[in-house]
Amino acid sequence: MLPELTSILYQFGTNAAFLLLSALGLIVILGMMNIINLAHGEFMMLGAYAASFVVHRGMPFPLAVIMAFFATALFGIVLERLVIRRFYGRELGALVTTWGISLILAQGALLLFGPYMPPIPIPGGAVSVGVFSFSVYWLILIGISVVLVAGLALVYRATRFGLQARATMQNPIIARSLGIRTGQIYMLTFGLGAGLAGLSGALLAPTTSIAPYMGQQFVAPAFITVVVGGGANVIAGAVGSSAFLSLIETPVSLTLGTFYGTMALLVMALMVIRVLPAGISSLGARLRPIVAR
């Protein structure tokens, strides 16, 4: 019984970590800035490309992941200055623009770097319990995703930047009148979101093939996680929705197969949005209004 239980827990953990890592950058860009960023997958691709590039020039993988964060964040900041800032408050304009950016980035990567990048070997081995064996790297990823989300919450709760960012997102005019440089805050927030997407792209890179269109696989899970989580408290919402969705997906996949597991996840996402249009986090907001925001 213990091996089966461990296997179910492991699957639950990897499913949730996959959703959470996919959503990490989007939590900031969609959840906080309200930009429907269809280039999210390509930001993750950039992170994976950057990591692969430096790993194969001798940099250790953990350093490469950190480097991928800064490289993608820098790219995000440049993009924000040049393009994105012209579309604040125009959600549909931003949607079309980021879609265009995603096409340019993916096809550009194909033209510049060819159909694939050298793969990154998965660090760590496997541990066995009974007939089942588990990837150590996925166990590490589960831990890292928890740490990253906690860190993000800390930045937004406990730092001056977090306070100013929350103020800017809530009401930019009043924030500006209080002396906050909102333009700079927008720029840094977008950079942070892009950087986090690149970071999770680099973290997931060993588990996938690093290719121009790799980003597409993360876009749907990312949007589902953030939207189901809702906007009342984006970070807690994303944690809640990734845990909730994998709680549904894992047993269904295990008993009926992967196809029905995916179906169950999508149906459950639909039902949550129907019953709680503002997402899972609105549940918390309703119960404890003081804690929210």
Partner: peptide, 16 residues
Amino acid sequence: GQNQSNYYPQAAAAGL
């Protein structure tokens, strides 16, 4: 396709 080819590194990492 791209997504499904992930099975191979993931299976190898899980010791399969």
